[in-house]
Design a protein around this nucleic acid. Structure first.
Lengths: 188, 188
DNA sequence: GAAATATGAATGAACG
DNA sequence: CGTTCATTCATATTTC
């Protein structure tokens, strides 16, 4: 993806086909996280301009990128993006420790470890799954496919859109700082 | 054991070996596919909860896993048809909900079937698929990892209570996100 | 065991 | 702002 490329997307429709997706560099990410940690919400437009200008010194970026980043960051803070994979025995960490040191990528600079490892700097994502021993399918193949009785309560699932209307509350930024991180983003 | 293992991560240090990701068991996969086949797409939060609770009886799992599974399932069902599709089978486009049913694997109980039985819906092997041997030009993102304290001018950002109050109260003022390509909408 | 493929997970971007 | 889509990465699994 040529972030700084000059090629223009030849209009595929109303969307950009995501042919050029901005990827924050290590330095940009550091700055963004720093700012995110300082403020509690999405910066104003003027702030975005300043931030964008600053981040432009470390790589191609636009105000839209900064805006999206803050929006996503904030939205996913409640989703415990750190323990995203697991969450069961997980560490319910919220946006409290945004100040994480991503030294690995910083040293590389080449950002070979893109996104996945970038969010796991502490070394504990709380998955706890661990197939340490060989979890080969053969081992669990013995289980009989007795799913008929199990799905009795799931029959309602055939209708995924039955309560998507609810959930739209006030637009106020009254975010409960409590860890109600049961929301990983769905229509409900 | 498999996902239900209790082994804890033995501290990798700087780099984390990234514990094995969740892998659905045969029974879980059957249930998930069944539900996916019933509904049109991603279930709601409440549905996810029910599904997760149900699947927990057949192995360790979290709501995030279920959510990701549906997201990937849906995305890849569409990709196979649209992206890989092309025009071999004649009708290229469809709703997207109807995916290639993998009933063969359910019979075996294993996750995959031998290559012989694995029939691709399009058979686009190495023609238009950029995946596989894709030279990612990530060089563009490269830049010196200079971690300078360039935040000097962004110091103002350290004050979260500058105007964000106006922002949250004045959400209705200029939050036309529909044009957020031009104006991503901020209270500035 | 390496290559190829399948797939869970992360995230930027877009929608409503 | 919350949700959802599309793309990509990393790992698990299969194949040779």
């Amino acid at each position: 993806g040529r972030l700084g490329g000059l090629y223009v997307d030849p209009i595929i429709g109303h969307k950009m086909t995501a042919r050029q997706r901005w990827t924050p560099t290590a330095v940009q990410l550091q700055i963004l996280e720093r700012i995110f940690d300082q403020g509690t919400g999405t910066p104003s437009k003027q702030k975005i301009k300043d931030i964008t200008e600053e981040l432009s010194q470390h790589g191609q970026i636009s105000e839209q990128n900064v805006y999206n980043w803050f929006q996503n960051r904030r939205a996913r803070s409640k989703r415990k993006q750190h323990g995203g994979g697991g969450g069961i025995g997980g560490s319910n960490n919220n946006n409290g420790e945004s100040e994480v040191e991503t030294e690995a990528e910083t040293l590389n600079g080449k950002r070979k470890m893109p996104e996945s490892l970038r969010v796991l700097p502490n070394g504990n994502n709380g998955i706890g799954t661990t197939t340490g021993t060989s979890p080969r399918p053969e081992d669990l193949c013995f289980q009989s496919p007795e799913m008929s009785s199990d799905l009795h309560l799931l029959g309602v699932l055939s209708n995924p859109r039955d309560d998507h209307i609810v959930g739209k509350m006030g637009l106020s930024e009254s975010y409960n700082l409590y860890d109600h991180v049961e929301d990983y983003g769905m229509s409900g």
